[in-house]
Design a protein around this nucleic acid. Structure first.
Length: 424
RNA sequence: GGAGGGAUGGCCGAGAGGCUUAAGGCGGCGGUCUUGAAAACCGCUGAAGGUUCACGCCUUCCGUGGGUUCAAAUCCUACUCCCUCCGCCA
């Protein structure tokens, strides 16, 4: 949610930023709802004030023994007026809130203006494309040849967009999870959390997945719970409806979770391999930051995520997403795109965003300043990294002429010391 | 799944239809005293919204939603969560 005061006092800024994102919105209706809302609040509060005073009088006069019948009648009438005024207010308020919940965040001034991913800006590149004296193959072929990824049987068990990992494939996945968790907790100062993998509607609304993107989520039958599409949801909501101490900030969490997405808008896209699955593993970084420092924290978060690929020694580049391509809740997002020689493309492996106060306002995550005043803090998160896509990157980058996979050095301690898949 | 008990401010805890504007305590902040500190004493100390240039004023909030009543923290009702016991279970 963006600041309601901004809507009231500077609707022009809101309109302009919606335009930059390419989003259409009836701002006139929003402004008039807000005006109506405030008018009704004043009206019903005035009536309530009258009611309270009269009620007090009755209580006092009753003490002296008199029964003021016409005062009670008056109060009765007031009560009716109040409830009808409040009913009207409820309707207006609901309409106003429904609208504010589907307005996307305002992009930060440093975000390039553009329509889609073609307007994103590559801001840095690390390493180089490796060269091979053979034709590198995509991970789905390699995985099936080595019998470490089984897509056919997963489709039999469940359906499309699921994978059965086997033997060293399963071990590689598990090793990457542990390697990333260890790196972020030991070297980058994050606290590990293991949250619930399903959350209620309130949490989903708090981080911005709801109400707008319900078609992307798996919802449980008979319960208003959803499978998480990212650890961002349960982890950011750790502090919903709480007031933190200023000196505690920044708070940094890392969480491993599986993620569940319907991929409703991606029919026929990325149907082969691990790229786009209904269930995938991810290690996620989440920060609760002081508003004055959140953009520094974003740069740090990006470096923490990048560090995973540096330690694995895999070439990547970083893109700054343009206004037309950033997510609904984000003010600024960097994507890390990893090089996949088997497919000859760069593929997003991490997305690092600053949400500023957008999520904090929805989820009521605040901090108390040294002067005692309370303010919304800023939330940030980024993949550190998506595990399936990292498996993809390791397989494709470290494949050998003989059809093996060399295990990156940092992973060897996690993989019982083996140096290649399969081992000798 | 069954049977009981509970949810009140940062924390503990009273309050059982209108003298609640929620007692009292702890903690925190400020002050008096002191070379300094402690102790003692005095004062202040929740959140959201509306309104105001501002001081302030007003409204709402006692787990959540409905209801009864002129009037609800207090009565009724449904739900949520926590505790105790029983059953089942990784």
């Amino acid at each position: 949610m963006i600041d309601p005061k901004l809507i009231r006092e500077n609707i022009g800024i809101v309109e302009e930023s919606l335009k930059k994102r390419g989003a259409a919105f009836d701002t006139g209706r929003l402004v008039s709802l807000d005006e109506k809302r405030r008018k009704l609040i004043q009206e019903s509060e005035k009536l309530k004030n009258e009611k309270n005073a009269l009620s007090d009088e009755i209580a006092k006069s009753r003490k002296t023994g008199a029964t003021p019948a016409e005062k009670i009648e008056h109060l009765k009438a007031l009560g009716k007026k109040i409830s009808s005024s409040e009913e009207e207010l409820k309707v207006i308020e609901k309409g106003w809130e429904d609208m504010t919940l589907v307005i996307p965040n305002l992009p930060h001034e440093s975000v390039p203006i553009g329509n889609g991913d073609e307007d994103n800006k590559v801001v840095k590149t690390w390493g180089e494309k490796p060269s091979y004296d053979f034709e590198p193959i995509p991970h789905w072929d390699l995985g099936e040849k080595l019998d470490i990824l089984d897509f056919k049987r997963a489709a039999k068990i469940t359906g499309s967009r699921f994978t059965l990992y086997k033997s060293y494939g399963a071990l590689l996945e598990r090793s990457l999870i542990n390697f990333m968790l260890d790196l972020h907790t030991r070297e980058h100062g994050y606290t590990e959390v293991l949250p619930p993998f399903m959350v209620n509607r309130e949490s989903m609304t708090g981080t911005g997945q709801l109400p707008k993107f319900e078609e992307e989520l798996f919802r449980l039958e008979g319960l208003d719970y959803f499978l998480i599409p990212t650890a961002e949801v349960p982890v950011t909501n750790i502090y919903s409806n709480e007031i933190l101490k200023e000196e505690e900030l920044p708070i940094k969490f890392v969480a491993y979770t599986p993620c569940f997405r319907k991929e409703a808008g991606a029919h026929g896209k990325d149907t082969r391999g691990l790229t786009r699955q209904h269930q995938f593993n991810k290690v996620e970084l989440v920060k609760f930051a002081h508003p004055d420092n959140s953009y520094n924290e974003l740069e740090g978060l990006l470096l923490d995520a990048e560090d995973v690929l540096k330690k694995l020694n895999i070439h990547y580049r970083v893109s700054l997403l343009c206004t037309g391509d950033i997510g609904f809740s984000s003010a600024k997002t960097y994507d890390i795109e990893v090089w996949l020689p088997g497919q000859n493309i760069y593929r997003e492996i991490s997305s690092c965003s600053n949400f500023e106060s957008f999520q904090a306002r929805r989820a009521k995550i605040r901090y108390r300043k040294s002067n005692g005043k309370i303010d919304l803090l800023h939330t940030l998160n980024g993949s550190g990294l998506a595990i399936g896509r990292t498996v993809m990157a390791v397989m494709e980058n470290f494949q050998t002429k003989d059809g093996f996979i060399t295990v990156p050095e940092v992973l060897r301690p996690y993989m019982h010391g083996i140096t290649r898949i399969p081992p000798d």
